[in-house]
Design a protein around this nucleic acid. Structure first.
Lengths: 262, 262
DNA sequence: GAGTGGTCTAGACCACTGT
DNA sequence: CAGTGGTCTAGACCACTCC
């Protein structure tokens, strides 16, 4: 004997899968569903919460419960790294025209809004290990936010770290008012003689913290994807460590691996 | 004025972050928390649900609510592909000794339990496009499950597709009783003259379906990571398409990208 | 203002865990 | 068995949306 809220959820789930309820349609009001099923409103709400967690239903306060539409996805391919590397040595005029975010989304600079902030911090154990330096080493921490002009919430939160001594030869790199920098980090590093040779990216998914839910405007039940990127120069030294927090429901990552021939 | 359940959640969250409640500790009973905070039990339960969605609290029926411990992670690196390719041409005795799952987990074949099942299906639009063949083309669909011997639930669900005509030259590839095949798919394909040259992996995260929650024994609020892998041979032809469903809270993926030198 | 979902109460009863 | 969380009820009142 199944639980009441599961049976209600099953019925609605089937209506959605069978197309009797289509994306964007409003479900019957909670009080109405309670009458129809002969259950109390809280029990109906338990069923709707289940469907919300599955991404099938979206609750909108004051308007109703809706069958969820697929959201536009942002693709991010590791081929972007070679592209960024190539772009870093283009003339300044060409570098300014498009950034890696536009490369990923296929949009122009006018469709996107950036925000950058710099801070000086010291390395914690985790970052120190990634860079292979002592804990407490001085770092530049740069935080980036990117969003569509048309939307309120950013689609990523990026925190990037550089070792201060490694980049201090070019004082402009310590100055946030120079953002956005044409050609981005890759060009910045090239001004102090650093060439990037290899990128390691670690991808995990986890539930969002309360702060991330707020800032990325995540619907309940959506996970965030955390991408930790380490860039190594031609000497095998880690030169940049960054963390990207991405909304799990609208991010697709594409990684291509080339193999040695037999 | 914050909502009651949020205030209760904040208090508990702070106790956990400050270390007054440590991983594995039991929280006060729900009735007890209701008394302490002067709220009803359902309101306390709303607070606990919030913390559960954040991965901070684990609810155990009949025992209590607990501060969640970090779970053991399974790492999966794209260096596994070169490793698998190399292994495919080792002698059979060497191939049998260890598989790619052991390579990822660092365990031996005795720690892991496999289950394989074959089916013959026809290509839907999505898979047909990936293979570059017509819809309705005959495919072999193979489903794999892997779990730790000590645990009930598998840590992945894998569905792999091959075009039937491409592999029919070796009838053993159509026979599920030959599993586990020493050297895996890579060796299987080499028996019909296929060498894999390039791998594309698409990673997304999404809420689990009701079936996946059941089969992977996922705690509520945990996302699944879906990895869609396409293998291309030396002629650039797609020869295998597979979908892996992984529990988001215990999977880390590592991708290394090598770049051209300046 | 009418209709919607969001918060909260007070309590009954069931299901699971450990002793 | 005692103690825990899980399900469910019946309803009050608030907050939001749209007309």
């Amino acid at each position: 004997m199944a639980k009441a809220y599961e049976r209600i959820a099953d019925e609605l789930r089937q209506s959605i899968r069978a197309g009797r309820l289509r994306p964007g349609d409003r479900l019957p009001a909670e009080t109405r569903l309670a009458e129809q099923t002969g259950r109390s409103v809280p029990t109906v709400r338990d069923a709707l919460r289940l469907l919300q967690a599955e991404g099938l239903v979206e609750k909108v306060h004051g308007r109703g419960n809706f069958v969820r539409r697929a959201r536009t996805r942002v693709q991010r391919a590791n081929s972007r790294h070679q592209w960024e590397k190539d772009r870093a040595r283009q003339p300044a005029e060409k570098r300014a025209r498009t950034g890696v975010a536009e490369h990923d989304t296929g949009l122009t600079v006018d469709d996107l809004v950036f925000h950058a902030a710099y801070r000086e911090i010291t390395a914690n154990a985790d970052i120190a290990e990634a860079f292979g330096v002592a804990e407490g080493t001085e770092l530049i921490e740069r935080s980036y936010r990117t969003r569509y002009s048309a939307e309120r919430a950013p689609f990523n939160l990026v925190t990037s770290h550089l070792v201060r001594d490694m980049v201090a030869a070019n004082p402009d790199l310590l100055d946030e008012t120079k953002e956005p920098w044409p050609g981005g980090t890759w060009n910045q590093l090239s001004t102090v003689g650093i060439e990037i040779d290899r990128i390691e990216e670690r991808v995990t998914a986890r539930p969002p913290t309360a702060e991330e839910t707020e800032e990325l405007d995540l619907p309940p039940g959506t996970a965030v994807v955390v991408l930790r990127k380490t860039s190594f120069d031609t000497d095998g030294r880690a030169v940049e460590v960054s963390y990207s927090t991405l909304p799990g429901d609208r991010t697709e990552m594409l990684f291509t691996t080339h193999l040695e021939r037999w």
